[in-house]
Design a binder for these strands. Sequence first.
DNA 1: CCCATTACTTACCTCCACGTAAGTGACTAA
DNA 2: TTAGTCACTTACGTGGAGGTAAGTAATGGG
Lengths: 131, 131
Amino acid sequence: MGKPHKTKQLDPAAVCRSSDPMAVRELLTKIGDKWTIFIVLSLDILGGRARFSELERAVPGISQRMLSSTLRTLERDGMVIREVFPEVPPRVEYEMTPLGKGLLRPTQGLVDWAKENWEQVRKAQSQYDER
Amino acid sequence: MGKPHKTKQLDPAAVCRSSDPMAVRELLTKIGDKWTIFIVLSLDILGGRARFSELERAVPGISQRMLSSTLRTLERDGMVIREVFPEVPPRVEYEMTPLGKGLLRPTQGLVDWAKENWEQVRKAQSQYDER
DNA sequence: CCCATTACTTACCTCCACGTAAGTGACTAA
DNA sequence: TTAGTCACTTACGTGGAGGTAAGTAATGGG
């Protein structure tokens, strides 16, 4: 038999101690969706402010529907501010708020981790798959 | 009219420069699913090693099906190692790999951000909703 | 013989994230 | 009059994530 290791007596909701579990879940769900990080990172690269069509070009493959709805969510969450200019054709600019910019740091941490370690993940996957 | 800001001439795939965009997307999709972070954080709290039933208790609300499949994915990705002890009733222990532990740092960054800023996000949401 | 335990798997169903395609409004230029 | 631009919205359809419930294998204990 393998050595039985110390079984810490644990609260049925151990994780929930470290912080509001719903906050973490919701945050991860948000930035874990298909387009949010790309939009946020693109906005950053574009200097923290860009118009709809610029983002459309910056995020290859995104549809107008998804860009629009993701931006609305970001706006609702206080991550970006939407500014409409009464012109024709219309012009709308999106600007990252301090809150949104603050999220960029920890997000960048994940991006960096992926850059450094993803190859290893892929290797683990193919090893696992071939038996 | 609002001041027209400098429109940076940009590559159609600006974000894609910073790193492998698929790696980032896949990573975010993984840790953005419903249970992965909780399992990873629980495993960490439990000392980096725990058996199935311990995790089941540590992550309130998770079903056996989801715990099992999420752990399999984690194992496939090289984040945890699964060790089976030939006993009856069965005992299976899951241990975080160095790769999995490495992911904990940037993940914790997000958890901390959520802890500090989620209240503000909620406030932004209710402001947005009431008009 | 029956039950309990552990770590699962399988079947089934629901919901929603996301994709595609088309339409819209307001104005300008040809 | 028609076409073009921009920033959207609406309608519709599909796959897959995830929930619920039940089944299973192997063995010891009463």
